[in-house]
Structure formats: C-alpha cells, structure tokens
C-alpha cells in the first residue's frame, strides 16, 4: 500500500470509539455482577437442590454452553417482547449476556466448591450446621479466593461476547466501528483502532487474572 495511514482521521474518530469502549465496559461489568448474583444462587441450588431442580439447572448450563452466543442473543432479543418485557438495546444486551454468563458462572462456582474436598463439608455437617449454613458459611467463603481468577477470565469472555451485540444494534465498540467504516469508507484505520482498543482492555484484564492467580496460589 503506497498511501500511508490517515492519522488525522484516526485522531478524529478516537473520541467516538472511546465512548463506545466505555459502553462495552459498562455492559460487561454489569453482566458479570448480575451473573455472579444469579449464578451464585443457582449454583447453591445446583449443589443442594432436589433431583428435579438439579436436573433443570444442569440442562440450563448445557444449553448456555452448547448453543452459540449469537443464537442465544437473538433468542433473548426476540423472546423478551413476547413476554411483554420491552427494554432498550443496552439492557437487552445486558440480559442476553447475563443469561449466557449465569451458565458459565454456575459451573465455575460448582467446580471450585467441589475442589475444596469432602473433609470441609463433612466436618461442618458433623458440627450440626445445616447444609445451607455449610455452603454459605464454610464452603463459599473458602471457594471465593479461588473463584476470583476464573471470574476475571469470565469478564474477558463477556467483553469478547459483547461484540456480538452489534447484531442487535447495541451501540458498543464493534457496532460503532462498523458504522464508521460504512459512513466514511475508511477501512484499515478504523480496524486498527478497534483492534487496539480491544487488546488494551482485554490484555490488561488477562494480566490482572494472571496476577490474581499467582497471588491465590501463594
């Protein structure tokens, strides 16, 4: 390519892309908080619930992990209005990503609680705690330390999945970049900035996750 990069244009669109990055971050952080709340609760049921409850939650986890995120986003997008839930794009996106995120969070919490070993729960039960007390007062506080690194990883996955929300016209980073390409017919400049913004956000989180992992291992 003989023509260099149009750096002036790149600077001009930067504020727009930064605002879109902020939307991406907002959506992702909200999603992770909500999926922790629901995922934590459901994983308690997954561990302690009756046979039917466990089977239902198992089915839900298989669904979220076995169906492409894009299809799940479309399902939420078209299904919510059928139940008379009318949300704007931003919140539809949060709900869709939370739906997927809950499935993964259940598995993370369950795996970490089960990795604690039977001694902990046997001892707590023998001391007369109820199963729910055992889970919430003994097992979960210990598991929390180990849950943090995979949870940061999950945030990375959510940020990457949030790019898919562009198909339901949520104004996040990928959507805004796409629009810029079609308005100005400038391709490479926009794509470079788009890529770098994702790499900065995701890269710093991957670094954080590794740091947490090293700390919790020590």
């Amino acid at each position: 390519m003989t023509t260099g990069l149009d750096t002036g244009f790149m600077l001009e669109i930067l504020p727009k892309l930064l605002r879109a990055t902020w939307v991406t971050i907002q959506i992702s952080v909200l999603t992770v908080i909500l999926s922790c709340l629901f995922g934590g609760l459901l994983s308690a049921w997954r561990i302690l619930g009756g046979r039917v409850v466990r089977a239902v939650i198992y089915g839900f986890v298989e669904f979220t992990r076995g169906v492409p995120p894009l299809v799940q986003i479309a399902i939420i997008y078209f299904a919510l209005p059928r139940f008379d839930v009318v949300l704007n794009e931003f919140w539809t996106g949060v709900v869709a990503l939370t739906f997927i995120g809950v499935g993964y969070t259940i598995e993370i919490v369950r795996a970490q609680v089960e990795s604690l070993g039977r001694g902990q729960s046997d001892a707590a039960l023998a001391l007369g705690l109820t199963p729910w007390q055992t889970l919430f007062l003994v097992l979960l506080p210990q598991a929390l330390r180990r849950i943090l690194p995979p949870l940061t990883n999950e945030l990375v996955n959510v940020i990457k999945a949030s790019a898919l929300l562009s198909v339901i016209s949520v104004n996040e980073l990928t959507k805004v970049a796409n629009e810029l390409i079609f308005i100005h017919f400038v391709v490479i400049e926009v794509l470079i900035e788009l890529t770098f913004l994702y790499l900065i956000v995701v890269g710093s989180l991957m670094w954080l996750s590794r740091w947490l992992e090293r700390r919790s291992a020590a």
């Binding site: 949030s162 391709v187 794509l191």
Partner: peptide, 22 residues
C-alpha cells in the same frame, strides 16, 4: 496468540473480510 485471544471473533472476521479486498 495475544491478538487471537485478546480480540472478539467477530472483529477478527471483519478484519479479514475487509482486509482481503484491500
């Protein structure tokens, strides 16, 4: 590896889709 793991798949697809004709 950092590039592949650090960007969403949809972005990678767009990059190739727009870049190939260029």
């Amino acid at each position: 590896v950092f590039f592949v793991r650090g960007t969403p798949i949809i972005v990678q697809i767009f990059v190739l889709f727009f870049l190939a004709p260029e």
